[in-house]
Design a binder for these strands. Structure first.
Lengths: 172, 172
DNA sequence: ATTTTTGCAAACCATTTGCAGCTGG
DNA sequence: CCAGCTGCAAATGGTTTGCAAAAAT
């Protein structure tokens, strides 16, 4: 449903009201499929959209609060819900390392990433030329682009300072 | 060692002769680290650089020929060698799905990818503006870029024709 | 009441690793 | 000869799944 990442620019029907909350959007998505917005799921959407950090399943599990009875949402449910949120276009997968990272794909402007291979830091940036470039290339190849991922890998300023002085032949 | 993907443009020492074979380049890389170009490793480099396909560890294992005694290179060695080839900048990792894909990063011009989310096809393209854009962005953020990955996701021409006619609200 | 969801634990699957014996230089 | 390899099999680690109990409509 026309996310910020979506390249399709036809306006088949009324644009969705960008004012609905992630939770509301998730509820709609589930309703359409005859599925339910349960307590664990509500807890997860709320928690996830309370901050704009990147995160992975493990971090999420660790951060989650326990309920009154000291029970946490199970790891299995976390994974299942993450899958749903991705299908609902509320989250986007990142795959920079062996574990899958997630970031908001709803209510958050389209952007790309700089990834420090040294300290694993991830910095976001916006660049409009990129989108144009993407559509150009897609057109040339007869593709219908629905999204893209542009990751620049290298050393962040901190790591450049930390080890930049070294020469670049130290293969051993 | 100054690969096509490398953004560092200082010329610390004589540029490597681009005429040496992947096998030769691998041998040098290993020699520097006091390691050996063994029979299994030689078989792997040769096999891998005989074609320009993308591949993953599993496909590689499946394709590998058995020796005279009907033994194949073990899966463990395949993984270990792939890691080495990546370190040697002969191969590059791709990470489009859950399994790691590999492609040549030596003797093959720098390029990016269109990824069809329907049939999983991967098409390569070259675009020089992208590299410039990458360096610009890196500079703005104080990064020292060493590479990038730009993947445009969407439907390839074939899949557009196959299912393009459908409207775009079919969430169910 | 019926269908979906949850939590647990076991299963999965790609990848990694310990180790004893083999091998290249 | 000796450091570095290989293969095997067992271990890992992230993610998925079967199933019976629990919850939602």
């Amino acid at each position: 449903m026309s996310t910020l990442e979506d390249g399709d620019n036809e306006a088949a029907l009324a644009p969705p009201p960008m004012s609905e909350s992630p939770e509301e959007k998730f509820r709609e998505f589930l309703a359409i499929r005859g599925e339910k917005l349960t307590a664990p799921r509500r807890l997860l959407v709320r928690h996830i959209f309370n901050s704009h950090k990147h995160f992975d399943a493990d971090e999420l599990v660790a951060e989650l609060p326990s309920d009154a009875q000291g029970r946490k949402v199970s790891r299995a449910t976390v994974y299942r819900t993450l899958r749903l949120l991705v299908e609902a276009n509320l989250l986007r997968e990142l795959r920079l390392t062996n574990r899958t990272a997630y970031e908001h794909d709803y209510g958050y402007p389209s952007h790309d990433h700089l990834h420090c291979t040294e300290c694993n830091a991830v910095v976001e940036f916006r660049n409009d030329a990129l989108r144009k470039l993407r559509d150009e290339v897609s057109r040339e190849h007869g593709f219908r682009a629905s999204g893209h991922r542009f990751v620049i890998t290298g050393l962040c300023p901190k790591c450049v300072r930390a080890r930049g002085p070294r020469r670049r032949l130290d293969l051993v």
